[in-house]
Amino acid sequence: MREERTKRLLTWLGITFMVGFCLVPFFFMIIVSLSRDPTFLSSQEVKYLMTLRNYGHILRAGSLHFPAYLRNSLIISALVALFTTFVAGLAAYAFSRYRFPGRRLIPLGVLGISMFPQISVVGYLFKLMTGLGWINTYNALIFPYIAWALPLALWIVLSYFMQIPQELDRAALVDGASRFQTLYKIIFPLALPGLFSTALLVFIFSFNEFLFALMLTTDQAARTIPVGIALFQGLHGEIPWGHIMAASTISSIPLVLLTVGFQRYIIQDLTKGALKG
């Protein structure tokens, strides 16, 4: 079987390329973050010395505010994940359990809305948040994030709710439970894995967001990780690569671990969000 052998060879070449392509920049980030001199590739004889100094520096040094950015990102993303999943759950209940005009079209329209470019709202949001006095507060980010994460969250939660047989909650309604009771006593527990993975995806989305955070925050009181790391500059115009890569590694590792740990869910959800439309 010559064809089989060529195919096996090509497959392994492809796999090697694929894994290298995806992981080399990631490992480069970690290697630089652990280096004593981030310019180690410039000398003729590459001399690499390992140190944890960069990590100590960004976790301690007050002027870089990295711990503050991390705290802001974690709090904002967690709150957004929680509220978005809850609001999406309420709406998905109505879309999957009630008959009313638009129950098919509205979710489609909402998905369409999520394709709007963020730039088309950010100027107005800036004025709105200035008017509310929310610039540089958590609120300035939490509210828009929830709105922008809702479309995808709605589609994913909806697909999980559709899989729960209607007889289950109808029986509870006949027994005299209220709509809201059926939702949180029957549907939510049954769809718990789905709700959890939705929250995870929304968390990653919020942690990633850049444009709103850039426009609506001004300093470490509310600034998030991506903007903080993007604006990291050295004191004398020299870019502190060791510190930047250490901060990047600390911020990325939890996301990578979550993604790898829950990859089955994430793959399912991403596919649902994209293909059900």
């Binding site: 995806c22 992981l23 920049p25 990631f26 480069f28 630089v32 990780i225 993007a230 979550l258 993604t259």
Partner: peptide, 27 residues
């Protein structure tokens, strides 16, 4: 599959800084 998902998990702003260093002229 997990390896392929790694770039997806890293925030764009962070990966942009990593690439900025990858493209650095001197080192």
């Amino acid at each position: 599959r997990a390896a392929v998902l790694v770039p997806w998990a890293i925030p764009i702003a962070i990966s942009a800084r990593v690439w900025e260093l990858v493209y650095n002229y001197n080192y």
